[in-house]
């Protein structure tokens, strides 16, 4: 039953194999399509409903009114005035984010987009708060 050096043959075979690891960062890591990376924001689509803010488990998203608002459309003659579409900014705290992408699923207007971006380390904490306009 007991055979000494049972693993020897396997070890010898491994001497002639390619390494199982890859030389990251010189070689790009393979990322799957479904990978949940940094969340991107598409401001024109946002309606400011704050659903993503409420659903976020890590309190990583802030949606605020933009400092510069687009001008109201010109009032057509005989028509009631059309209210201007409000523009929103997104502050994404990457240091809080747990990358669950629940906000992307919850957003009713698809204003939040999941990207495959994973190289997010930074030397300053301030740079981890992204301001999307």
């Amino acid at each position: 039953m007991i055979k000494p050096a049972r693993v020897f043959g396997e070890v010898m075979r491994h001497l002639f194999k390619k390494p199982a690891t890859c030389a990251y960062p010189f070689e790009k890591a393979k990322i799957t399509e479904r990978f949940r990376g940094r969340i991107d924001f598409d401001s024109p689509k946002c309606i400011g409903c704050q659903m993503c803010v409420r659903v976020c488990p890590a309190k990583a998203i802030e949606i605020k009114l933009s400092a510069e608002q687009p001008p109201a459309p010109v009032q057509a003659e005989g028509q009631p005035p059309v209210p201007a579409k409000r523009k929103f900014d997104c502050f994404m705290h990457l240091d809080h984010c747990v990358y669950c992408a629940q906000c992307v699923e919850t957003c009713p207007k698809d204003a939040l987009i999941m990207t495959q971006d994973f190289e997010l380390a930074h030397t300053s904490r301030a740079a981890l708060t992204r301001h999307y306009k």
């Binding site: 199982a20 479904r34 949940r36 747990v98 990358y99 669950c100 992408a101």
Partner: peptide
């Protein structure tokens, strides 16, 4: 790594599948 790749393929992440 093979099974972690399967999990990444199906769910998107290796550890927290969500």
């Amino acid at each position: 790594e093979q099974v972690l790749d399967c999990l990444e393929l199906l769910s998107g992440n290796r550890v927290h599948y969500s």
